[in-house]
């Protein structure tokens, strides 16, 4: 019960029974999806979904903790590359990919902990954090971009420079390999778990402290909380979640390039979060999914207007829904529901 309360707590969209019915239906929709989706569509949906953990992590960090990172793609890349190296070297070993996952996520945790330590314990100003994280991502991109030569081999795996690391193995548990529909289910499961986990986190006591830090770091500190450690903890969680997206990405496409860590890619998670509304996890999840879908649909139609439309969309959304489109809509829906409730007293 206590855990259920964590999930239905006030710090995300949806507390009503109706919401949870819709939510379960939505999950069911994803679970039953393969009944009407072709394998190709399932693969596309997997791609939209696999970006969600990174977006959720950034939402925790930015929306709930008030710290914007512009370089979440660095952890995306670290996990992806490390998975490729470990799983690629242990090719044939049924447990290699699992070890690669553990290694990738651990590396994300370690790197983000060290980097975060430098930032938060130095108490750098808040607006510098995005640029510092971006610099880390650009450094990694520059380094990986020039690793084309043979000397950049780790065991039997070549880093591959700008052309990227190819032939990254599918995910595998024992003798069962995940691809096609099974990969789709694996993504759905992991994304659901990370969403519910984040939701529980923000409704926990720690979540309350995060919000306090966002509102007023100084006051929070005076109340006796070590905000440096708390910020660092959220930073690490966000890094690991970005790493999870990176893992799923390389398992989806069997491929990663340094441009995944570049400036353009780095801005995308920030945009997903801002468009949905950074103050609510679900809003971010919805907008990340939707924007990925729109990007694909536009370019699939094969015209030059894709970037213009996306750019215009961003401007319009931020002008008219400055708190994020999903958050604003949800708030209005709540208000309507509230007025309806008030009109019919006695139903409590």
């Amino acid at each position: 019960m206590k855990y259920l309360a964590l999930l239905t707590g006030p710090e995300d969209i949806g507390q009503s029974r109706l919401f949870w019915i819709v939510f379960v239906l939505l999950v069911l929709n994803f679970v039953l999806g393969p009944l009407w989706m072709s394998e190709f569509e399932a693969s596309n949906v997997s791609y939209y979904l696999l970006n969600l953990p990174m977006a959720l992590g950034l939402c925790l960090l930015w929306g709930y903790c008030g710290v914007l990172s512009f370089g979440q793609v660095a952890y995306f890349g670290i996990a992806g590359y490390l998975y490729g190296i470990i799983a690629g070297n242990m090719r044939g070993d049924p447990w290699g990919p699992l070890l690669g996952e553990v290694g990738g996520l651990a590396a994300c945790a370690v790197v983000s902990a060290i980097f975060g330590y430098f930032m938060f314990y130095a108490r750098v100003q808040r607006w510098i954090v995005p640029i510092l994280t971006l610099v880390l991502a650009l450094l990694l991109e520059t380094f990986l971009g020039q690793t084309a030569g043979y000397q950049w081999r780790v065991g039997s795996v070549q880093l591959g420079g700008y052309n990227g690391m190819t032939g990254i193995p599918w995910f595998q548990l024992g003798d069962f390999t995940f691809f096609g529909y099974s990969f789709y289910y694996y993504v759905v499961l992991l994304v659901l778990v990370s969403y519910l986990g984040c939701r529980a986190l923000v409704n926990s006591h720690h979540g309350k402290v995060m919000l306090a830090m966002r509102e007023d770091p100084l006051r929070t500190e005076l109340l006796g909380y070590d905000i440096r450690a708390r910020q660092l903890a959220v930073f690490v969680i966000a890094g690991v979640l970005a790493g999870l997206s990176g893992l799923l990405y390389v398992q989806w496409g069997n491929y990663i390039t340094p441009s995944q860590l570049g400036l353009v890619q780095a801005a995308l998670p920030v945009i997903w979060v801002a468009v949905g509304g950074r103050s609510k996890l679900l809003a971010v999840a919805i907008s990340a999914y939707a924007l990925n879908w729109i990007t694909y649909s536009l370019s699939s139609a094969g015209n030059q207007y894709a970037l213009v439309i996306i750019g215009g969309l961003l401007v319009v959304v931020m002008l008219f829904f400055p708190d994020g489109i999903v958050v604003t809509l949800a708030r209005n829906m709540n208000r309507q529901a509230l007025t309806r409730l008030l009109r019919r007293p006695g139903r409590s």
Binding site: F40, G302, N303
Partner: peptide
């Protein structure tokens, strides 16, 4: 059947599958 890859590798993979 012409589609636009937008210099984005993930998109290239999706479009190829399509």
């Amino acid at each position: 059947v012409s589609v636009d890859g937008q210099s984005n590798n993930a998109l290239w993979q999706q479009l190829t599958r399509r």
